[in-house]
Every structure is written in C-alpha cells, then in structure tokens.
C-alpha cells in the first residue's frame, strides 16, 4: 500500500520535473522563434507557422510514433544522441522532454508571437536612441511590456506538458522515476481497475489545472483592468 503511494508521488515528481525542464526550454527556444516570426515578412512565414501549429491538430500518437522511430538507435537523431551522450535516447527522460517541447511549442510560440506583433516598436526605437542595446531593450522594455503573455505562454506550456499522454506513452515507456508521469500512472490505475486511486489522481490533476488557469486569468484580468483604467482617464478631457 505504502509503495503504491510512493509510486504515485514519484510519478508526480517526474511529471513536475519534465514540465519544468520543458517549460524552460520552451521559453528559451520559443522567445526568439516568436520574435523572428513576428518580424518575418516572407511568404514562408505561413508554412513555418503551420508547422509549429501542427501538434494542435495532429493526434499525439502520430507525433509520438515518428519521434519513436527518429529516437531509435537505428536512425540519425538517435544515433547522434547516443554518440554524444553515450545513452539511448528512446525511453529516456530526455526523450519525453524533447517530445514535450515539440508537442507544446505552439502553446508557447503563439501567445508570444501575438504579443510581439502588437508591441509598439517605436518604444524600442525610443529605447535604442536612449542608448539601450538589443539585450538591454529585451530585458527592460520587451519583457516587462509582454509580461502577461510570457506568463500565459509559460503556464500553457507547463500545463500542456503535465497533461501530455500520447507522446509520452509512445516514446517514454513506463519507467518509474524516469518516464512514468502522472497521466500514465492514471492510465495504469484504470487498467488495473483501481478506480479509487484513479479518482484521486484525476481529481488532483483537475483541481491543479483549474487552479493554474484561474491564477493566469486572474493575473491577465487585473493587468487589463489596469490598462483599461488608464485608457479611460486618458480619454477624459
């Protein structure tokens, strides 16, 4: 009984680890990607946007299947990984992180890209003529102005990774402490007809998701309210 509990706790820890690492990677990759797309004026933009949005419509198992093949030691990405790290990529923690990053990419890139497109670029011009270089402008103008979108992007990326099932099932297997995440644990409980445990896990995931989303919406709402107020007073004579 006790080990049952600790198994679920372990799955929770693994899930949080995967989600946290994925979110960090997503922000690091997604920010420049979103910036580049927001400024891109080539007709290739539509194609790249469609590629990034693909995980939104593609069945996760399809993505997982192709990733599994790519990660296997018989194929180039898997081979390359093995020669660099000395470990097999498929069925590893790294594999589900990579899978999660690809799968959650649109959830991070899309809100950021939208924010960057709406950003008043004359503010960046203004900053540049006041001596602020590109990084300086990012930290002190872009980041604070797009704070809400960054929080939305990070939360969506995190939550989506936590809820991820199909891809992880295909490429992660079910190794406790390595690739056994909450959604897989839940599936196991259901398969074993252990509905009590399944209920507990499902319910905690549900509550957790609602709490996270509520926090994000609350934050965005208060930001909007603040901006709305200032807009109103600006219009006053």
């Amino acid at each position: 009984m006790e080990s049952y509990w600790s198994q679920d706790i372990l799955a929770l820890v693994t899930t949080l680890k995967v989600a946290l690492v994925s979110t960090l990677i997503l922000l690091v990759i997604g920010t420049p990607l979103a910036w580049w797309l927001a400024k891109l004026q080539s007709r290739w933009r539509v194609l790249i946007e469609a590629l990034i949005a693909l995980p939104l419509v593609l069945p996760p198992t399809v993505l997982g299947f192709y990733l599994l093949i790519a990660f296997s030691p018989q194929h180039l990405p898997g081979q390359w990984w093995q020669s660099v790290t000395g470990q097999q990529l498929a069925f590893s923690f790294s594999a589900i992180v990579i899978g999660s990053v690809i799968y959650s990419l649109p959830f991070v890139v899309q809100p950021l890209q939208k924010a960057f497109e709406q950003l008043d670029h004359s503010l960046l011009d203004s900053g540049a003529t006041l001596g602020a270089g590109p990084l300086d402008r990012f930290w002190h103008i872009i980041l604070p102005l797009c704070k809400a979108s960054f929080i939305t992007a990070a939360t969506l990326g995190f939550a989506h990774t936590v809820g991820e099932f199909g891809v992880v099932l295909m490429i992660g297997g079910n190794i406790p402490g390595e690739t056994r995440v909450l959604s897989i644990a839940l599936f196991d409980h259901v398969e074993a007809f252990d509905y009590a445990r399944a209920h507990l896990l499902a319910f905690s995931l549900l509550i957790g998701s609602i709490a996270v989303l509520a926090l994000v919406y609350l934050f965005n709402f208060s930001e909007q309210k603040q901006q709305g107020l200032s807009n109103q007073s600006r219009q006053m004579p």
Binding site: L123, D125, S126, T129, L130, L145
Partner: peptide, 20 residues
C-alpha cells in the same frame, strides 16, 4: 554605427514613453 552607440536622442510626435 548602431543607434544605441550614436548618442543621438530622438523625440517623436508621439511621446513614446515606456508605459510600464
């Protein structure tokens, strides 16, 4: 020379103050 290294300030028609 990049604008941030020119030491030339620019005031625009819209004030372009940092709203945050």
């Amino acid at each position: 020379v990049a604008p941030e290294k020119r030491h030339i300030a620019h005031v625009f028609q819209r004030s372009c103050l940092f709203p945050h």
